[in-house]
Nucleic acid binder design. Structure first.
Lengths: 117, 117
DNA sequence: AGCATACTACGATGATTGGCGAACTACGAA
DNA sequence: TTCGTAGTTCGCCAATCATCGTAGTATGCT
């Protein structure tokens, strides 16, 4: 029994632009691991599967962090085959909080400078 | 016997500029109450005693939030008589994370627009 | 169909957080 | 010295968080 939904794979709920709250975004960014994910999504732009990231935690923890990022509105995710591709919601974030993402990325760019790819 | 130190009252430890970490700052800002405090310190600049803020929590909780802000490097505090005066560490934050504070303040400025003084 | 890959869901757990009240300290005024 | 104001410290509690492992689902390949 198939329901053939519009997007490939199961649907994922994202907050709409006006549902994104500053505190949630700040909270999502206030974690080294998530900061690392966001940084990679920013510098190495385009979509990335969760498994593209070399995170020092288990798969279930990885899922958790990606969900926090998605539910706060920082990233958008979409299923593509067996993987789930994530990308930064740059436009939305820049529209809502101009300069925020840039300043955070600049700051963590200095920290992650040569640490990862 | 006075030693007339630069700062009156008991000493309070603050992180030095290079000890301030992005995650800590983001975490400190990721709370509505603390955001409100920071916003007031920004728009109504100069120092403010903790009791200057009309916070819907108890004194001990207030102490807690101010400590989080101070220990993360977002504010500086100094005793003046019986009260403790807080102010934003604008210079340090702007130097470390250019644009971060401005973007956060701009965003919460919209939210607190007419809500408080 | 069978199997591998990629991610999810579900507890469980230990740490942190945000909140409180009560008792305490520091300072300034009476 | 006594009192009031301002803030601190200390449990304590409920909620959230980051983490895990195990079991499960969806997809794609053979």
């Amino acid at each position: 029994m198939k329901t053939q939904p519009p997007a490939p794979g199961r649907p994922l709920d994202h907050p709409s632009r006006d549902q994104i709250r500053l505190e949630d975004v700040l909270h999502a960014l206030a974690d080294p691991l998530r900061l690392k994910i966001v940084h990679k999504l920013a510098v190495d732009c385009g979509g990335h599967a969760c498994s593209d990231f070399d995170l020092p935690v288990s798969k279930s923890t990885t899922t958790h962090h990606f969900r926090v990022l998605r539910e706060s509105g920082v990233i958008a995710q979409e299923y593509q085959g067996t993987s789930k591709v994530s990308e930064l919601r740059r436009e939305d974030l820049d529209a809502l909080f101009p300069g925020l993402l840039d300043s955070v990325l600049a700051a963590c760019g200095r920290r992650f400078a040569a640490a990862d790819g």
